[in-house]
Computed example of a mutant assay.
Amino acid sequence: MRIKEIFKKAIEMGIEADFRGREGVMKVLERKRKKYEKLSKKEKEIFDLEALENPYLDSRIYNIAEDKEIKKVLAGIHIEVEELLVAKELGNIDLVISHHPIGKGLANLADVMELQCDILNYYGVPINIAEGLMKERIEEVARGVHALIHQKTVDAAKLLKINLMNVHTPADNLVAKFLKDLIEKEKPERLGDLLDLLLEIPEYKEAAKIGAGPKITVGSPENRCGKIALTEVTGGTEGSPKLYEKMAIAGIGTIVSMHQTEEHWKMAKESHINVIVAGHTPSDSLGMNLFLDELEKRGIEIVPCSGLIRISRVKK
């Protein structure tokens, strides 16, 4: 596989696992195309044309120094300049894949957050409420990432002549679907049961050994789960903390979260919603592993770094 084929595979896997379904994702792209057609010539000159084909603008190819068959990949959760230097030192790395967005992908992180509205609606929050509360949070995130130095790692990759890409929301979609399917199949009754279920997943079990595994942060093991929602696993970053009250009204009893800020934790507690924070590192690792397994099936060697807990599910 070449770099563009690998990236295309990631996007396709993300679409297949998306809460909105393929049709819903295609509607988002069609809406962007219609907006593009209405732009002036001057506006079109600076428009990001990838937005017309890629529904996950926090996932990108940043540098193709050499377009070749990829045999060995260095993959990590958070790739920065030091990981690129590791790749250079190893000497036989054909492609570096980050999970977290960098460059233009980081600059466009807020673009994917609309997905959260559909996830909230899936679990019973009226779409008008979800969109209303998410709008201000999306704007907040957009302002925050705008101030960052996005191109640092990308510039280093170009100088070092290293192939570089990232897979963010597609991988997060994969872990969200994996957990959703597992929870719906096993139907854990109490928080302790749900925690035990997560700890049966190798990535979470390994993370627990280093103090980064799943934790009950609101509620107790004896609390009944009620409706379990995966509202804080995919869709860019944390949504609005004001949503917890609306989630409680919608009948959500427990949230499985990837990570939470203190403000989000307080609002969830005030709304009497149980919370299990599954863990950032193992959740990101699970999503990336589900994607990386597809590369391994095609004979590509995976070298984990930067926090990636590599668990292969490829049958030997």
Rank of each mutant, 00 (worst) to 15 (best):
D58C: 06
S59I: 10
V73M: 10
L57R: 15
A65L: 03
K42E: 15
D48I: 11
K71L: 12
R60A: 05
I70T: 10
S40A: 08
I61R: 03
P55I: 09
K41H: 11
K38C: 01
K41G: 02
V73C: 11
E45I: 10
K42W: 13
K71R: 15
R33C: 00
S40K: 08
I70R: 03
K42S: 06
E45H: 11
K41R: 15
E45T: 13
Y36R: 05
Y36S: 01
V73T: 08
K38H: 04
K68N: 04
I46V: 15
E37Y: 09
N63T: 09
L49E: 08
P55C: 10
E69K: 13
N54V: 09
L52F: 01
D58T: 06
R33I: 01
L39E: 02
I70W: 11
L39A: 03
R60D: 03
Y36P: 00
K72F: 07
K38M: 13
P55T: 11
E37Q: 14
S59N: 06
S40N: 00
N63P: 04
K42Y: 14
K35I: 08
I70D: 07
R33D: 02
R60G: 01
E53M: 03
E50H: 06
S59Y: 06
K71V: 13
K38L: 14
D48S: 12
L49P: 00
I46D: 07
L39F: 05
E45L: 13
S40M: 09
I64R: 04
K72H: 03
Y62A: 02
D67V: 07
K42H: 10
D48R: 12
E53I: 13
Y36E: 01
Y62E: 04
E37C: 12
A51C: 13
R33P: 00
K35P: 00
I61M: 03
L57P: 10
I61L: 07
I46M: 05
N54Y: 08
N63Q: 08
K34F: 01
K35N: 14
L52C: 06
S40Y: 03
I46W: 05
Y36V: 02
K72T: 08
N54W: 10
S40P: 04
E50I: 10
P55K: 11
P55N: 09
F47K: 02
E53L: 13
D67C: 06
K42V: 11
D67K: 07
D58K: 07
Y62R: 07
K71S: 09
F47V: 06
A65I: 04
E69H: 01
K35S: 13
K71P: 06
R60E: 00
K41P: 04
F47R: 05
A65W: 12
E53G: 04
Y62Q: 02
I70Y: 09
E45C: 06
